[in-house]
Amino acid sequence: MKKILVIDDNEGILDVVSIILESEGYEVHQLIEPNRVTQLPPADMPDLILLDIWMSGADGRVICRQLKDQPHTRHVPIVLMSANKDIAEIADSAGADGYLAKPFEMDDLIMIVKRYLTKEAG
């Protein structure tokens, strides 16, 4: 079963995303304290990270760059999530693999997750 880590400081978003992805058969883990992701041991690394950009006390762009700079996490696809209209540019400059604009449709979330998890499997 593919493991997805959702990082957001909004519990409502965490819950909605988790429910949607679990209904698709994914194992979903949540982090409300974004900085903890850089401390995860390699064995706990997910197959995909969905990372909010604007969180209290943390910047998703910085976390994304940190993860992409580490040998044991650089292979993990990271999809940045934000309501910012420049999300495509932001994701590109942060080194993210993709992005999802908020608010998003359920189908868009499922499609982008499948895109990155299928790419990895193939």
Rank of each mutant, 00 (worst) to 15 (best):
A83T: 13
T38L: 10
H75A: 14
P42W: 03
G57M: 02
E89Y: 03
P42L: 09
A94D: 09
H72Q: 10
L80Y: 09
H75I: 03
I78N: 10
M81S: 12
A88N: 00
A94V: 11
S56P: 00
A58M: 06
A94S: 13
V62D: 10
Y99A: 04
A43Q: 15
V76S: 08
A43M: 08
T73V: 06
A58I: 02
I53A: 01
E89P: 05
R74I: 04
I63T: 11
D69N: 07
I53T: 07
I90S: 00
T73A: 13
Q39A: 15
G95V: 00
K102C: 14
P71G: 05
L50S: 04
A96N: 01
R74Y: 07
K85L: 05
G98C: 02
I87F: 05
E89H: 06
D97S: 10
Q66P: 02
Q66N: 09
A91C: 06
M55P: 03
T38S: 14
K102V: 15
P42G: 03
M81Y: 13
R74V: 07
W54S: 08
Q39V: 08
L50T: 08
D92R: 14
L100H: 10
I78G: 12
Q39S: 15
V37P: 07
L51E: 11
D52C: 09
C64Q: 03
I53Q: 04
V76E: 11
V37L: 12
I53Y: 06
P46I: 05
P71E: 13
P77V: 02
S56Y: 03
L67M: 08
D44A: 15
D52K: 13
P71L: 08
T38H: 05
P46D: 11
W54M: 13
L40Y: 07
Q66G: 02
Q39G: 10
A91L: 06
T73F: 09
N84F: 11
L67H: 06
A94R: 07
D47K: 00
A83Y: 09
I87Q: 04
D52Q: 12
I53H: 04
G95A: 01
R65Q: 06
E89T: 01
A94G: 10
M45H: 11
